[in-house]
């Protein structure tokens, strides 16, 4: 007993929280005994306790105000409440719809973003991509066979002009229209029987097929080579693209331009438009485009639903507590 009194004396004064709980009789028996022992010896804490009790007395004696009017509800509220409960059910359904719409919206938009950035490849991109180019090469071979006299004449002109003509100034060009303003052209250089024609792909030149005269005979080889080209062309080469400061067109359609009339215009090389450095050959089917448009439209619709849902939820929230 004597030890606990000395311990209480050495302790600090009673804190506000403990004193407040003591007044409200919210302390445990052990704590209450310690407080009471301390109060017996500490004048300052006794003064604090007395002041606190006076404050509580004052608050209890604070005048109660009479109600200025009755707050009972009119009977008409009952019919309004029926409508409100109907709204409450609709509100619950709208909440679920809004959550579902949000999820779908995120799904569609993230899917679009991933496909656009190339993280997810387009379906059937690689196998289909080679087909148009192979077809192009085959058609080119056919066209060349038909327009042999013209080519001979063009070659003769080129020979007359000597070496002045640039190497890639080909007499026959297969232009590749695309969505990109800069057209992509696959050129086959005019050559003599001894020379090997090349397909110019920007700055790179690749051997593709044999002499124009043997084009028909070598069509299967051209097809195979075209496939290789298509595969290479689909893969972007960042160092070259960066060097040119141009972005390769994401989607291109390769279609041969078959000359309507047999004779080709002379000096076709002058009409050629410079090739982009890294053409990308990608198949864009109608189904893909439709699918993409459907996705975008769905995204927009879901966005509208989401905004409407959020608005309704907000209105509902305002009508609640």
């Amino acid at each position: 007993m004597g030890f606990s009194i000395i311990r209480d004396l050495l302790q600090r004064h009673i804190g506000e929280q403990k004193l407040s709980a003591y007044v409200d009789e919210r302390l445990s028996v052990h704590e209450r005994q310690r407080v009471e022992r301390h109060l017996k010896t500490c004048t300052a804490c006794r003064g604090d306790l007395a002041e606190l009790r006076t404050v509580l007395t004052m608050l209890k004696r604070a005048p109660m105000r009479s109600v200025p009017r009755s707050f009972t509800l009119p009977l008409s509220v009952q019919s309004q409440q029926t409508a409100f409960r109907r709204w409450d059910k609709a509100y619950g359904a709208l909440r679920v719809a809004a959550v579902a719409a949000s999820f779908l919206l995120i799904l569609f938009l993230s899917g679009d973003a991933l496909v656009t950035r190339g993280v997810i490849p387009m379906p059937d991109r690689m196998p289909v991509a080679s087909a148009p180019l192979a077809r192009t090469m085959q058609e080119y071979a056919d066209v060349e066979a038909l327009s042999e006299p013209v080519e001979e004449e063009t070659v003769a002109i080129a020979e007359r002009e000597g070496e002045e003509a640039p190497r890639d100034a080909a007499p026959l060009a297969l232009s590749i229209p695309s969505e990109d303003p800069a057209p992509v052209e696959v050129e086959v250089e005019a050559a003599t029987a001894d020379e090997v024609p090349t397909v110019a792909m920007g700055s790179r030149e690749r051997d593709v097929v044999g002499a124009p005269h043997a084009a028909k005979d070598r069509a299967p080889e051209a097809e195979a080579e075209a496939e290789v080209l298509a595969l290479e062309a689909v893969e972007p080469q960042p160092e070259e693209a960066a060097g040119q400061g141009e972005k390769a067109a994401p989607e291109r359609i390769i279609e041969p331009i078959v000359p309507e009339s047999a004779p080709m215009p002379p000096r076709v090389a002058e009409q050629q438009i410079p090739l982009p450095q890294e053409p990308t050959i990608v198949d864009v089917s109608i189904a893909w485009r439709l699918w993409y448009v459907a996705r975008v439209l769905s995204g927009i619709l879901l966005g509208i639903v989401l905004v409407l849902g959020a608005g309704l939820i907000w209105i509902g929230h305002k009508r609640r507590i």
Partner: peptide, 17 residues
Amino acid sequence: VQAYNELVLAYQQLAYN
């Protein structure tokens, strides 16, 4: 509503204060 109004009458003094 009448049942609710009885509750209102019981607590309106406290609520208003």
